[in-house]
Design a protein around this nucleic acid. Structure first.
Length: 816
DNA sequence: CAGTGAGCGAGCTTCCGCTTGACTT
């Protein structure tokens, strides 16, 4: 057994490091945090000393047990978690839970995974930094108090199951406010003038006028003014322009570029990067640092010089400026620059790797040298000037491999100008006056939201992707589906001294794939801003981070910060609990045309709903849920009344009545006892019998058995987790190596047999009459299964000797 | 799984950051 145990956070890192250290060292991983506050209750003594109650995280029990075993057999334990707040806390929890002492434990840190860095770290251990640990405790406890005290307020005042937190609530606020900006935006139009001129050599180029016009009349009169006008070059200026490469990738910039260039979602970028990291092709992918190790800079330099030549190399260091950066890792870069990734089999992995390769290499290359030309063209008839700009590349430098994408591309790039002389006379091919509408602000995409959060110092590299999922899962935010509308605009053209008018068309107002707030998101945000302005302030995180820094520097005691915060926060929570009005976003739509009762729309316990009448009325109110295609803020009285026509009887099929209705899980068709979901885009209010029958037949077809194996039908389908076949109540995933569209008889038999074999190995007991099984799980665990009940069997019980009666007894206890 | 919404009250929900698999349909 090795004398030394090194513990790092990530297993892939452990594997790499073990190669650098000799046989005296065993390297293991903690898989991140091992200890946390309990999930069931607050877990903080808020009435006294703010002491947190820690327990070993549920999924880390075996990890801790294994580490304890290894530690007990070692002479020295090296705690090598990351060099930041969270990493220091992990080291401390390991120290506590592995029951180490000062003689046996050493804390070491390194922020690059190279042999010299690690050996250097081993030679320079330091004590655990308890100030840094306290800063982490403060961060953890603050987040817990905010999240676990605010969420129950929402359950009571708005809807059960909702959540609030320091990061997610502010993220939703950003999206809600952006939507309001767009809604309140006043679109104005003006006329822009652009022209194409011709030189003496018959070369054409484009130019813009330095003035715009408010009305069509003004634009037209300007064009008239150009008839019989002479044009000449008044001024020609050439200026050098330098472009510098962007720094290497952090998590946030990688997510943005992968979104712009590869159209990856934030979470897809992270899973693909994780694969590359596990294969040892890139460094760690959750980082806020732009720093490159000396090793990386050296090998990038060598690669650049040999591939492009000396003049392309410009080795430099980058430093991170944004708030709250902890610099525990390197920037995201290839581990080996000599591989351009052509051999990576998976296409997505290859594309992401090559993006990282280019960005990193470019960051170590020379600036690009450009020359910008500015030409001013005057008219004999008026004062205003036409301006043409051109750009030529004198030396491409880093542009040879990489240029960064832009989020909101508006102006076309200025190209190359022909040879033009000063005072040269020009003629125009055409002059256009084009109506342009001012553009409303851009909605956030996943990646641009991450950028905004990072700018505000909110959230961490490991949480950007999960935060975006959370706010969508809670129903606060969704991806837009509106395609946009057509809009006409006018273009006046002066050609050969004649003015003509054209009506052109453009599309505006699309929110496809962008983040838009739901009714719930808007109501919750307004409620929180009303009652908890402080927490919803964009600077809240920045302010508390300052306190955390003071704690880390030993200038402030962490529980005193908590007391100070809680003293103001908690009474506010109590007050809102007691006194605040229920927030439902209620809007009165009008009165019922027949019975004159009030019709309103609001957010109810189970989501948005329409209500006829009020509680005060003699007659009870009638309700209908508002389907997702409508919104509280925009639904009309007519649409609301329509909803009460459900359920609609469409006709008959196989002697059964066919109904269309809205259910808990969306619109559906019902016939007999069967249900068929109505797909998005079709309304249960307007669907006709024919379409409904088509849907029914489609469903029957997809459920039709494709094969019969051992007397049991085989069906196939596509689920949440990809294509599968179903046999004997087992879902069998069909991997990519099979052609799911055209499964052969052999494929099906093979899939079922493989699965049967796996099942057999797993099952210890099977009392099929009672539908009770005992199965083997991972880590030597055993499970008792009946229907949907799944219970872990304690290790003290001999599973093989278990009888049916024992099993029944255990299931009974479970129910209590 | 495919109607509930007042009010009553049971019993449930919830945070942010650090890490991977196991597991779902």
């Amino acid at each position: 057994m090795a004398k030394n145990l090194v513990i790092v956070e990530s297993p892939a890192k452990a594997k790499t490091i073990e190669k650098f250290l000799g046989s005296d060292f065993k390297v293991a991983s903690s898989f991140g945090h091992i200890s946390d506050l309990p999930s069931k209750d607050l877990g903080v003594n808020v009435d006294g000393d703010f002491k947190p109650k820690y327990e070993i995280s549920k999924d880390k029990k075996t990890v801790v047990k294994n580490l304890k075993n290894l530690a007990d057999k070692s002479d020295l334990v090296w705690l090598a978690s990351d060099e930041d707040r969270e990493g220091e806390a992990i080291a401390w929890h390991l120290f506590r839970l592995l029951k180490l002492d000062e003689n046996k434990a050493r804390r070491i840190v390194f922020n690059e995974i190279t042999e010299s860095a690690i050996k250097n770290a081993i030679e320079n251990p330091r004590p655990i930094d308890y100030n840094l640990v306290d800063a982490q405790q403060a961060r953890r406890v603050l987040d817990r108090i905010v999240g676990y005290e605010l969420s129950p307020v929402l359950w009571k005042k708005i809807k059960s199951g909702l959540s609030a937190g320091r990061v997610q609530s502010v993220s939703v606020r950003l999206i809600v406010e952006k939507e309001r900006e767009i809604k309140n935006f006043n679109t104005e139009s003006l006329y822009r003038i652009d022209a194409e001129f011709k030189t003496n050599n018959n070369d054409s180029f484009k130019a813009k006028l330095d003035k715009t016009f408010k009305t069509k009349e003004e634009a037209e009169s300007f064009l008239n003014n150009n008839k019989n006008s002479d044009f000449s070059v008044e001024n020609l200026e050439k200026n050098p322009l330098k472009k510098t490469p962007s720094p290497p990738f952090t998590t946030s910039t990688l997510q943005q570029e992968a979104s712009r260039k590869l159209y990856f979602s934030v979470s897809k970028t992270m899973t693909v990067a994780q694969r590359l990291y596990e294969s040892g092709l890139i460094t760690y992918m959750r980082t806020d640092s732009v720093n490159l190790s000396n090793f990386a800079k050296d090998s990038a330099k060598k690669h650049i010089i040999s591939a492009f030549g000396n003049q392309y190399s410009n080795t430099k260091s980058y430093h991170t400026k944004s708030k709250g950066v902890q610099d525990a890792h390197e920037a995201i870069r290839p581990t080996n620059f000599s591989s351009f990734g052509d051999k990576i089999l998976d296409n997505d992995q290859k594309r992401l790797y090559q993006l990282i390769w280019k960005r990193t290499i470019a960051s170590q290359m020379s600036d690009a040298m450009l020359e910008k030309t500015n030409v001013k063209i005057k008219s004999s008839n008026y004062e205003n000037l036409f301006i043409a700009t051109g750009q030529i590349v004198k030396f491409d430098g880093f542009l040879k491999v990489y240029s960064e994408g832009k989020d909101n591309v508006s102006d076309e790039d200025s190209g190359i100008l022909p040879n033009i002389q000063i005072n040269e006379n020009l003629v125009h091919n055409f002059i256009n006056a084009t109506q342009r509408f001012s553009r409303e602000p851009f909605r956030y995409t996943e990646a641009s939201l991450v950028k905004k959060l990072e700018d505000l110092g909110i959230g961490r590299p490991s949480t950007y992707a999960p935060t975006i999922s959370t706010i969508q899962n809670r129903g606060y935010v969704e991806k837009g589906t509106i395609d946009g509308e057509k809009r006409n605009y006018i273009q006046l053209s002066l050609v050969n001294e004649i003015i003509s008018e054209n009506l052109l068309e453009e599309k505006v107002g699309s929110d496809k794939g962008k983040l838009v707030p739901t009714d719930t998101g808007i109501i919750v945000t307004d409620f929180l801003i009303n009652h908890f302005e402080n927490i919803m302030d964009y600077n809240f995180t920045a302010n508390v981070e300052q306190n955390f820094d003071h704690i880390a520097e030993g200038k402030q005691e962490w529980t005193s910060m908590m007391k100070e915060f809680y003293k103001n926060f908690h009474p506010r929570v109590e007050d809102v609990h007691k006194n605040a009005e229920r927030e439902s976003g209620k809007r009165i739509l009008g009165v019922h045309p027949e019975n004159k009762r009030e019709i309103s729309v609001k957010l109810g316990k189970f989501g948005p709903m329409i209500q006829v009448g009020t509680v005060e009325d003699e007659e009870k109110p009638i309700f209908a849920s508002l389907p997702p295609e409508f919104q509280i803020k925009s639904v009309t009285l007519e649409q609301a009344l329509d909803l009460f026509s459900l359920p609609r009887e469409l006709g008959e099929y196989n002697n059964e009545i066919v109904l269309a209705n809205n259910g808990k899980y969306g619109p559906y068709i019902k016939y007999g006892k069967k249900f068929v979901s109505i797909p998005k885009g079709i309304s249960p209010l307007s669907i006709q019998l024919n379409d409904a029958l088509d849907l029914i037949k489609m469903k029957e077809q997809s459920e039709a058995p494709i094969y019969n194996y051992e007397g049991i039908d085989v069906q196939k389908g596509k689920g949440k987790f990809g294509p599968f076949i179903k046999w004997n109540n087992m879902f069998i995933n069909v991997s990519k190596k099979y052609d799911w569209e055209n499964l052969s008889e052999n494929d099906i038999i093979q899939l079922i047999e493989e699965r049967k074999k796996k099942e057999k190995e797993k099952v210890v007991h099977n009392w099929s009459n009672e539908n009770i099984r005992v199965e083997k799980g991972k880590w030597g665990k055993f499970y008792l299964i009946k229907g949907k009940i799944r219970k872990e069997i304690s290790k003290s019980i001999d599973v093989n000797a278990l009888t049916l009666d024992d099993a029944k007894q255990m299931l009974e206890n479970k129910k209590e």
